[in-house]
Amino acid sequence: MALTIKEVEYVAQLARLQLNEDEKQIFAEQLSSILEYVEKLNELPTDGVEPLAHILPVYNVFRADEIRPGTPREEILANAPLVEEGQYKVPKIM
């Protein structure tokens, strides 16, 4: 399965990764060879095999509906690149 530059661009956009033209080219090649390798899985018939998403036979893990104080605002915002009025400041949306 060879990945086209267009597909690389689509995935990069989904993943919010800005790639330059060289990177696109390299990723197209590398991802193609990795995908070619994982094609190996198609050798295995898996009809009727239940997908395994959770390895532990554990269900219904809950917490009680109790409030605990959160993190003080100055503390939680301390790592933020840009803050205004106690909020995270981000550039315009559109």
Partner: peptide, 9 residues
């Protein structure tokens, strides 16, 4: 939202 220079979260 279309004209705002920045937004707060």
């Amino acid at each position: 939202i279309t004209t705002t220079p920045f937004s707060l979260v």
